[in-house]
Design a protein around this nucleic acid. Structure first.
Length: 433
RNA sequence: GACCCGUUCGUCUAGCGGUUAGGACACCGCCCUUUCACGGCAGUAACACGGGUUCGAUUCCCGUACGGGUCGCCA
């Protein structure tokens, strides 16, 4: 079998769509698994969409996910250029082939292809043999009156020119395939293998659109999802390693990916599970690595901080509490800023229980007696305060937490106390009223 | 409307003729923790329907219903 060559051919719409990202992922996995070549080709024949920002959205999205391309924009390759807007000469020559064969005609300035409309059987690697009986569709336009070329035409020409062996694309292209086959036949070229993958649906069951939550890869990047986690989630959406396990690091996805494992049915997108998988990756992240990714996140939220503010012990606890980096911000804000925000619901709940003042005073005086400001001693001090009040230790912890952080949840209480230090802890306890 | 693809817990899925229909997210309960989580354990919850084929269908075939997609001088 000839070496595998696959491509991801997005149109610059201004964002990298999750559906597109998964198509890219499956192509990438297939290429990497088979030691083949992954090509990125930008389908920018529609000039209105072709902006530098729109191109950049594709590149940065793929790069964030770790999907590197062997040939394509910013990378080169022997079958370029890889932007359709730069391939007009190639399209001209292919169009001439059709003209010479008398297979096209002029229609109000546009060029149409005489579609044979014969019955076409597509030996799809995922859907199985799919037969489209002879159709009665209008001849397809291959070139607009303004001289630009149409998707179906350039898509086929590029796949031929770039030596694509397997076309792995969304199932929405399946009904287009007979027309593509018409073109391959007209050019006298053996078509590539086709593999149409099922679609990603939004939670309400229709094709995921730009406006749906989680539709753009940039959203995940901005919210601080773990890129490998998102990749892992996307891989499991429509493909199964057939094992009762959810976490598959990228390298393992590569070694296990096959087209046979791709499902036929569409899959609904579940942001909750995506977040859970992302969290699984953070849960095992080394402190140094976590520090590196969380610091810029804090800075972006206007939280000036340094490495010294994030000791390993704190990060080791932080990693179990977040699914995305944005979840780390409020947690850390409470420790790093003295003008931290206060959750109204938490204070309301606190006051509904009993007057917190005497409890906090008791805690403050117990903490004052602490010798070394460290876990076990702090813990003992809370016990002592509880004893003095004739109450349970647990009864003091929620009030203490709210006074110290303004939140109902967050880090373990002794961690909060340790990080805040004696002075700031006492200050917050006495200031609370 | 025509043509294609599809249909296992709410969701993602395992299953490829005989299973107590398994796992995961979410949800609920318990344990751990005198806090918040993490973690561990248990639970609720699914084969769309009707015909066949077969000793036996979630698994194979045909219908029906439902869902999705495509029918552009968008990609």
């Amino acid at each position: 079998m000839s070496p595998v060559r696959v491509r991801f051919a997005p149109s610059p719409t201004g964002m990298l769509h999750v559906g597109g990202a998964r198509t890219a992922l499956f192509n990438w996995l297939f290429a990497r698994h088979n030691g083949g070549t992954f090509i990125l080709r930008v389908e920018d024949t529609d000039n209105e969409r072709n902006t530098p920002e729109a191109n950049e959205a594709i590149f940065s999205g793929l790069t964030w996910l770790g999907l590197d391309w062997d040939e394509g924009p910013n990378r080169g390759g022997s079958r370029g250029p890889y932007r359709q807007s730069e391939r007009s000469a190639i399209y001209e020559s292919y169009l001439n082939k059709l003209k010479d064969a008398g297979l096209v005609y002029d229609d109000a300035g546009a060029t149409r292809f005489r579609s044979p409309n014969t019955t076409r059987a597509i030996p799809d690697l995922i859907c199985g043999e799919t037969v489209f009986a002879g159709r009665e569709e209008p001849d397809m336009t291959v070139r607009r009156a303004d001289g630009s070329f149409i998707f179906h035409f350039v898509n086929v020409v590029d796949d031929i020119e770039m030596g694509v062996t397997h076309v792995i694309r969304g199932e929405d292209h399946l009904p287009n395939t007979p027309r593509h086959l018409d073109l391959y036949e007209a050019f006298g070229v053996t078509p590539p293998h086709f593999a149409h993958i099922p679609l990603i649906l939004n939670p309400s069951g229709t094709k995921m659109s730009k406006r749906d939550e989680g539709a753009s890869v940039a959203e995940y990047k901005n919210a601080g999802y773990h890129p490998q986690g998102v990749l892992n989630y996307l891989a499991l959406l429509g493909w199964s390693p057939k094992e009762d396990r959810e976490i598959f690091p990228t390298q393992e996805l590569v070694s296990r990916f096959t087209l046979e494992g791709v499902n036929r049915g569409n899959a609904k997108f579940d942001l909750e599970k995506c977040a859970w998988i992302s969290g699984q990756y953070f849960h095992v992240m080394e402190p140094a690595a976590l520090r590196e990714v969380v610091l810029p996140f804090l800075a972006a939220s206007g939280l000036t901080s340094t490495e010294a503010d994030l000791p390993d012990a704190l990060l080791l606890e932080l990693r179990t509490k977040i699914r995305t980096l944005s979840e780390a911000v409020p947690l850390l804000t409470a420790l790093l800023r003295d003008d931290f925000p206060v959750d109204a619901a938490a204070t309301a709940k606190l006051r509904a229980q009993s007057d917190p003042k005497p409890l906090l005073d008791a805690l403050a005086s117990a903490f004052q007696e602490v010798g070394t400001w460290q876990g076990s001693e702090l813990d003992a001090a809370i016990g002592k305060a509880a004893e003095g009040l004739g109450t349970k230790k647990g009864a003091l912890m929620f009030p203490c937490r709210v006074a110290l952080t303004g939140q109902a949840g967050g880090f373990g209480l002794t961690m909060v106390l340790e990080q805040l230090g004696r002075e700031r802890s006492l200050e917050r306890l006495t200031r609370f009223s």
